[in-house]
Design a protein around this nucleic acid. Structure first.
Lengths: 134, 134
DNA sequence: AGAATGTTAACGAAAAGTGTTTAAGTTACC
DNA sequence: GGTAACTTAAACACTTTTCGTTAACATTCT
């Protein structure tokens, strides 16, 4: 049984970075070049991105596509829209308006500009009323 | 930018499995042996396990060690214990007793026998009062 | 017992991932 | 301009993963 995606090297770098060290400082400590620290850190972030994407796939596997939030929509209109769509297919959404918006902003922070949606967001829902965004 | 951890083959098998197909049925469709379907499915599950573990590491990265739940402890004593420890370091735990126990059992189901803890569990907490178990 | 389902071990070939170095490129700040 | 922090790309040796086969083994249902 193997560990997670991150190599010992990558974990090491992430820990030092979390403490606020520069790549050069870390390079000195672990006896390698700063370029190498950079690539190690970069591939660590890449691995984290992939881990997230993998679990996203799992979620959408037992979830059905609920609706699409089109670009330009106001953030405050999103929750009512999702509630209506979910009601149409007879599923009760698990989250109240506040949690829903928080969850949405957390899942796709880059897709917002102030109160407006920048790019379309696909919304998935499962039988339990859990929501996933892709 | 690469995809998630799962190969197309693995996703394919997982989708068919979700639909309730047997390994033999899938093997016939994708033109390979059932043994191979089995190994593909198995490594898919392994990849999913690793994705989860990777994100767990991320959580503990900005969390500090709160306390250790020793083997033999009664499940009903865990929540009060954690609350007390968190209070000692001035952090309010995000979960009520019920949610806390659910979260604990979900994270480490193999470490319980009826109402008792089998092996020691490390508890981590972050500034927001989120808990992680390792 | 027979049949279907699932698992495991051993092995090979092709593909992908890892750690490194080197070298050239930003970006930002004094 | 110069320097420190950081990024990027190419190339290398090395290790691991993946997909596939075959054959044996365990489980469960009829």
């Amino acid at each position: 049984m193997k560990d997670g995606l991150l190599t010992d090297r990558q974990k090491e770098v992430l820990r030092f970075r979390k403490q606020g060290m520069t790549q050069q400082q870390i390079a000195d400590i672990i006896h390698t070049s700063k370029a190498n620290v950079c690539t190690i850190e970069k591939s660590a972030m890449e691995n984290i991105r992939r881990a997230k994407e993998t679990l996203e796939f799992l979620y959408t596997l037992d979830a059905t596509h609920l609706c699409t939030i089109e670009a330009g929509m106001d953030l405050l209109d999103v929750a009512p829209f999702i509630y209506r769509e979910a009601e149409n297919i007879g599923i009760k959404v698990k989250y109240d308006t506040i949690s829903l918006i928080n969850k949405l902003r957390e899942a796709t922070p880059e897709r917002f500009r102030a109160r407006h949606v920048r790019d379309a967001i696909e919304v998935y829902i499962n039988d339990e009323g859990d929501l996933y965004f892709g």
